[in-house]
């Protein structure tokens, strides 16, 4: 079933009309031809799509980033990497299915790939906790990253989470510490690290696997300190302010790029990544292999210093 977002409705209506015309045409029930009208509507659809998708608001991009048909981490892993072999568990408490990770290869080189994973349907979402990891997810990620570091494998992380899970068990097992330790330890890993925000970059839960040498983002993904909903509730005390909050927070790929908070944008087809997964995967594969080559050519201490300096530079203030 096709899923239509609110702002895509004008396109959906035109498509419905087009289908009607086409079925009349095919059945020959009316003895006139609609070829001309069909061509006209097809053009109108193309124009409307072009207009809508080249003028997306921040809030509309957030909706696209959360699109139920949007490719998730494992979809990209399948398309981009070869021989993915999942590894499980944090060796302490559980295997958090909201965080996946394992060996894979790209360009015949082995890498460690790790990412937050959402579910496609209700059943899988219960298993994946809607992509919101518990402490054990972040600890599993760190376990795999430390192993990668020990054996010299570059790390690729794919980020797609509304945030770390706000739950009782998560607090009891110290979700804050699990994330904080990752922030500290990722800074000291000697291997190259590339992070790609593929959908939702939800605050600390995203950053918990996001301390990388290079941080890329898909065109319609977002990365934010707080969800637009959370920000609207706190600052405007109204859910009607969500689009405004989304705009003010500067969370879209192009805004983040212009603030130098991300290094590169990976383009998506018109309407979003769900319309052509393999096209996005092809660009992603190129970006990953180029970036890993470039990072791999640096000396360890240079690379680590550059990573430190990358994050060290963030922040604006005056001193007078």
């Amino acid at each position: 079933m096709k899923h239509t977002l609110e702002f895509e409705k004008p396109i959906a209506e035109l498509e419905k009309k087009l289908d009607e015309l086409k079925s009349h045409e095919a059945s020959g029930s009316l003895s006139v031809s609609f070829q001309e009208e069909i061509a006209l509507i097809e053009k109108k659809i193309r124009d409307t799509r072009e207009t809508i998708f080249s003028n997306l608001t921040a809030h509309q991009r957030v909706m696209l980033a959360r699109h139920p048909k949007r490719p998730y981490t494992l979809d990209y892993i399948r398309e981009v990497f070869d021989h993915f072999t999942e590894l499980h568990g944090d060796r302490l408490f559980a295997d958090d299915r909201a965080m996946v990770g394992g060996f894979a290869s790209i360009d015949d080189s082995q890498v460690m790939v790790i990412g937050t994973q959402k579910g496609r349907d209700t059943k899988e979402n219960i298993l994946r906790n809607f992509g919101s990891a518990h402490p054990e997810g972040y600890r599993k990620a760190m376990r795999l990253m430390k192993m990668a570091d020990k054996f010299g494998l570059p790390i690729v992380t794919l980020i797609d989470t509304a945030g770390a899970y706000p739950g009782i068990g998560a607090e009891e097992r110290h979700i804050a510490e699990a994330i904080a330790v990752n922030l500290r330890e990722m800074m000291l890993l000697e291997v190259p690290i590339l992070a790609i925000v593929i959908g939702e970059g939800g605050s600390g839960g995203a950053l918990g696997i996001g301390v990388a040498d290079k941080v890329m983002i898909l065109e319609n993904a977002y990365y934010s300190v707080i969800s637009p909903e959370g920000c609207a509730a706190i600052l405007w005390k109204s859910s009607e302010a969500v689009p405004q909050a989304a705009e003010c927070l500067r969370i879209t790929a192009d805004q983040l790029k212009s603030l130098k908070l991300v290094d590169q944008i990976i383009p998506e087809p018109l309407g979003g990544a769900q319309n052509d997964v393999s096209a996005v995967a092809t660009s992603m594969r190129q970006v990953i292999s180029q970036t890993l080559k470039q990072l791999g050519s640096m000396g360890v201490s240079d690379r680590m210093k550059a990573r430190y300096d990358r994050f060290r530079a963030f922040g604006q203030f005056i001193e007078s």
């Binding site: 605050s203 950053l207 301390v211 934010s224 300190v225 969370i251 060290r312």
Partner: peptide, 13 residues
């Protein structure tokens, strides 16, 4: 915004 989030990584680094 994101400048605040990045302070988390910066201080931990």
């Amino acid at each position: 915004g994101m400048f605040s989030l990045m302070q988390m990584a910066k201080t931990c680094g």
